[in-house]
């Protein structure tokens, strides 16, 4: 699957290949109203990864429903809206609007964006915050509810258990790690916001550890995200307990990575004489 914030609204990837070949597309984070996002510069390359401080730039849910949705709704793969709010009420109102869309089978509740001043990660770093927003959204939404977790916490499995307890159908993790980059020559920060979210292969080992911890703590399916750029990475996440994976920042390097992983997984199954990819989930040999 394709991770939110790295595949636009699916059309951008469909410019390269037929997106029906991927397992699902998590659309760019959407808010109730238009957001311009943070000021430039919003990106800094770091060792084996990058920092971003986009700040949820999007045209708002009404624009999505009127303009984007009609163009993408017939793509033959699940389209999941990544839902963001600065208050619980905003999450609810946005979810109710998305609930009306027949071709959106699930939402990913983003309580982990590190680049907005209000809401976002604030909900995702405490159990009461994560519980409150999950509970209220669950009340108004009967389709699949996935909650995207922040890694910027002491114990991510506690947050995962909290949202499971409020009826989440699945958790996806991790969002980006809060990080920072400084230009030693100018002595200035490289991002307009000073801090931003770290992603890419640099975060993979930490994300893998967190997925492993969460998979042991909850019964609902876990979606693994964090620096996945090839088949081996994806399989590692499955072995750690993920039921599915998302490719994120890797798409910037090569939008074909998800297709390569799908092919690579088929080969892996043949080589290891396995019938089904699900045989690998949580199959870490100890």
């Amino acid at each position: 699957m394709l991770a939110s914030g790295t595949c636009g609204f699916a059309e951008e990837i469909n410019d390269f290949y037929d997106v029906s070949q991927v397992g699902g597309i998590f659309l760019k984070g959407t808010t109730l109203r238009n957001r311009d996002g943070n000021e430039y510069p919003r990106m800094a390359e770091t060792a084996s990864g990058m920092l971003n401080a986009v700040g949820l730039q999007n045209k708002g849910v009404d624009y999505f429903i009127e303009t984007t949705y009609p163009k993408i709704k017939d793509y033959n793969t699940p389209l999941i809206v990544n839902v963001n709010g600065s208050t619980v009420e905003e999450y609810i109102e946005l979810t109710e609007k998305i609930n009306e869309l027949d071709k959106i089978p699930a939402i990913e509740l983003n309580i982990s964006c590190p680049n907005v001043k209000e809401g976002g990660m604030a909900f995702g770093i405490t159990c009461p915050g994560a519980e409150a927003v999950t509970r209220e959204v669950r009340r108004v939404y009967d389709k699949t509810l996935i909650v995207k977790l922040s890694p910027n916490v002491t114990d991510v499995s506690e947050i995962a258990k909290a949202v499971e307890g409020q009826g989440a159908d699945s958790v996806s993790l991790v969002n980006t790690f809060l990080g920072m980059a400084i230009d030693s020559a100018t002595r200035k920060p490289l991002l307009s916001t000073i801090t931003g979210g770290l992603s890419g292969p640099a975060i993979k080992p930490i994300a893998l550890r967190m997925v492993w911890q969460v998979a042991q703590a909850v019964k609902i399916p876990v979606i693994g995200i964090g620096g996945i750029i090839n088949t081996a990475d994806a399989i590692e996440f499955l072995l750690a307990g993920a039921s599915a994976v998302q490719v994120g920042t890797g798409l910037f390097k090569d939008p074909f990575i998800p297709l390569e992983i799908i092919e690579g997984m088929k080969k892996y199954l043949e080589e290891h004489r396995l019938n089904n990819i699900t045989d690998l989930i949580g199959g870490l040999q100890m």
């Binding site: 914030g5 790295t6 595949c7 636009g8 951008e12 990837i13 410019d15 390269f16 760019k28 311009d36 996002g37 430039y40 510069p41 919003r42 990106m43 800094a44 390359e45 990058m50 971003n52 986009v54 730039q57 920042t249 798409l251 910037f252 939008p255």
Partner: peptide
Amino acid sequence: ENLMACGFGVCLCCIEPTQHGNKCVCT
């Protein structure tokens, strides 16, 4: 030539303020 991560309009990093809001330099 604003700094960009993807080059095809998904990362929203290379934005330039325009009369019509923030636009991606890449697309």
